[in-house]
């Protein structure tokens, strides 16, 4: 079975920070990063703040251009020339679902946009697809007439998910999709995602600080620190036998937290 998405020697250098009067030039370097993901698998990226997790997500969806290396989808290398293929197959869920929805247009309009730009469906087919996707994520067809401010946080997260799913992508990249949610809504969304993944066979890459969720849903883990991957492997292996010191600390804090909750 071939890899769905394959990342080879991906690097990125943030050159925008120039040396100023009181601060020295400090370039943030990411990578080299290598990983691969099969269809239906879930990959979690964990690491401290500023370790380049969000940057990696942006590189994957094409918001930033890598300095070297390449990302291939089903064996085809993604470049700026097949941007449309990337728009179609690799979709992103942003960290803050509130910010990622346009306040001035209805949810129907928001969901219509990717369809209008990337598919040849006509108006009626698009409307049908929007209703179907809204139901898929547990919203009602009426919600397409709503504006962002009329929804709760959990519903907004569902809309962000609907927006990512509406093109039937192969890979979903999510930047801390559960961070802003309260526990009950969070578990709802996690279950929803897992169901959808099982139904559609998505490759799911997500960034999270919540190791409980990571352990629960991911197949593989990448641990990042200072722009480098310091440890990668199967979830159970990393949770049971962490090699690096940083990973050991992470896992131990997580275990301590769980134990305290139990007693």
């Amino acid at each position: 079975m071939t890899d769905l998405i394959n990342v080879e020697n991906l690097t990125f250098v943030n050159r925008r920070k120039k040396a100023r009067l009181f601060s020295s030039a400090k370039n943030f370097e990411l990578g080299p990063i290598n990983f691969s993901l099969k269809a239906g698998e879930t990959l979690a990226i964990v690491g401290a703040n500023g370790s380049g997790k969000s940057l990696l997500a942006k590189l994957l969806v094409g918001l930033e251009k890598p300095a070297s290396g390449h990302i291939s989808l089903n064996g085809d290398v993604l470049t700026k020339f097949n941007q449309r293929q990337r728009c179609f197959n690799v979709r992103m869920i942003f960290q803050n679902s509130n910010e990622s929805l346009n306040p001035g247009i209805t949810l129907g309009g928001i969901l219509d946009e990717p369809l209008r730009l990337n598919t040849d469906l006509n108006l009626l087919q698009r409307a049908a697809k929007i209703e179907q996707t809204l139901q898929q994520v547990g919203l009602m067809p009426e919600h397409q007439f709503f504006y962002r401010h009329m929804l709760s946080d959990g519903q907004r997260q569902r809309v962000a998910l609907a927006r990512a799913l509406i093109l039937n992508p192969q890979v979903l990249v999510a930047d801390e999709p559960f961070a802003a949610l309260d526990p009950s809504v969070r578990s709802q969304i996690v279950n929803l995602l897992m169901n959808i993944q099982r139904d559609l066979g998505l490759g799911f890459i997500f960034i999270s600080h919540n190791l409980g969720i990571v352990r629960h849903i991911s197949d593989k883990i990448i641990v990042m620190k200072g722009g480098k991957i310091i440890e990668a492997g199967k979830t159970e292996v990393i949770f049971n036998w962490p090699k690096e010191e940083y990973t050991q600390k992470l896992v131990h804090t997580h275990q301590a937290l769980i134990n305290r909750q139990v007693t």
């Binding site: 942003f94 990622s100 929805l101 306040p103 927006r163």
Partner: peptide, 12 residues
């Protein structure tokens, strides 16, 4: 803002 970035990712 992120909603413009999201639209950019839609290929706008």
């Amino acid at each position: 803002k992120e909603y413009v970035m999201a639209a950019k990712l839609d290929g706008a």
